[in-house]
Design a protein around this nucleic acid. Structure first.
Lengths: 272, 272
DNA sequence: GCAAAAGTGTTAACTGTACACCCATGT
DNA sequence: ACATGGGTGTACAGTTAACACTTTTGC
């Protein structure tokens, strides 16, 4: 969904075909960590019960990667984000037969409404939007505390951080897209250093471990985790402690920018 | 490139837009192993100096994965192939400025010729083929001894197994696509069992090791390799030896179908 | 007999894992 | 004082990596 300034109907009618790469979209699974749970940024259109991933079409003269960056930028205000494509969803019927409880009709009315509200065009004169679409999935890792969520059309689309088990109904195959993205970052965890993108600048070892636990979906040994992750060398210890909480004040750590980048390049190789 | 029966020009002119998903193609990196080197199936059009990957457009009512299977089928005659998507190449200028030595013009003439020979249409009346294309890369692993290479238009397109260092000029970004596919199978090697697809039914341990060495691009210790790969349990030893060669006759091994599949499912976890 | 490749075994170094123990802090 | 989480260390098991020795075969 791209926020073009409102114009007259005929104008817009031409636009879609002229400005967007046909039959193709990009959807982003934007992960954030609230200190306890792994969350995903989701969109809802009031009046409809489904939630969908933030996505967009791609401009004809825009690199596909840049379209994903644009979505991130539009929704979170962030630049320089960790962003990777992970899978193309290309089944011919991926927009049909979802939900299984009459959602085909819902889909139809939603599209109509989106076209009217967001693009100011009537869907019955816009076959472009109704044609088959394939979508490329990207995942992004962001620091949830840095994000200012944005709606593209005030009072129309809702943007929220959601734990994936909070969501009752997913738009089309977006449940599958999220599942696949989770599998991807889980397997990346043993190859790439992850964490810098999802945590604030200073963090405790427990916070980092809980992030890993949230991604992997299981508990890790506190002491072995610390030894292993410090052995990679891209995390430094600060002479500060987190005060205020109950119990012993834990040390704060930080990511060494340079060494973290190097580790991203050459990869690590661990089993968790 | 899809082999439609020849028809008149006006017929074809309508066809492209009507039958294919617009602006999207699929390219396959088909790996084979000749016992010594890792090879890739490449296409050449006589009269042009570049080599390209076998690829195709996708039918409007065809799953993208099925398009990749179709290419494999068309070119090698094989079904039930190990086939995975690995990356979408979506830069807006990926079909321009390749080679760097005036290949833009070559590209133009080639397209024209392809359109004439393969599709029987004139390119100047076919803007569809000249518009921006993004392509999804698939890699496939096949048993080179089982493959009967096929040209789609006899005497027009050449199909050959090529070591990647044999190829002087690649079409568009196909060098990059191959590089990325190689990186992908290299990293897969520590997660997935690979080999069954690339080797004949019976093979020696040295042949299997040389395959791994070819993929990784470095030597592996003969004895440690054997111990490690046998420990996964999906390879069995036969009571047969390969006779005829010089030196001591080596034992033959085979892949246990069932256990191999299981290992594909749950994954292995090794460092090579 | 010799060179080259195959088969088998041994050892030291390293890593993963499961703990035990003590420390600091707020209630 | 005590419950709870944090910091540090150790010990065993299992795996990896390096390498020695013997066997078989063709020339």
């Amino acid at each position: 969904m791209i926020n073009l300034p409102a114009a007259n109907i005929n104008d817009k009618l031409l636009k879609s075909e002229d400005v967007f790469h046909p039959g193709f979209s990009v959807d982003c699974v934007i992960f954030g960590f609230d200190g306890d749970q792994l969350k995903v940024l989701m969109i809802n259109y009031p009046g409809f019960d489904f939630w969908k991933l933030p996505g967009s079409f791609v401009f004809k003269n825009e690199n596909v990667d840049d379209a994903a960056l644009r979505i991130l930028q539009e929704r979170t205000g962030l630049k320089n984000i960790f962003l990777r494509q992970f899978h193309l969803f290309g089944n011919k019927d991926r927009l049909d037969n979802w939900g299984g409880w009459g959602h085909n009709e819902v889909h139809g009315t939603w599209r109509k409404k989106v076209l009217e509200k967001l693009y100011n065009i009537r869907s019955d004169i816009q076959p472009w939007f109704d044609s088959r679409f394939i979508t490329l999935g990207y995942y992004a890792l962001v620091d949830i505390t840095q994000v200012k969520l944005k709606t593209l059309t005030p009072d129309y689309d809702l943007v929220e951080w959601k734990a994936i088990n909070e969501i009752p109904v997913f738009y089309a195959d977006h449940q599958e897209i999220i599942n696949k993205s989770l599998e991807t970052i889980q397997s990346q965890l043993s190859v790439l250093p992850i964490g810098k993108e999802l945590l604030p600048e200073k963090f405790t070892m427990t916070e980092l471990r809980m992030l890993y636990e949230a991604i992997l979906g299981r508990k890790l040994d506190r002491r072995n985790f610390q030894r292993k992750i410090l052995s990679f060398g891209y995390i430094g210890k600060l002479n500060e402690k987190r005060k205020g909480g109950a119990h012993k004040a834990p040390s704060l750590f930080y990511f060494n920018e340079k060494k973290y980048q190097e580790a991203q390049m050459r990869g690590i190789g661990v089993s968790w």
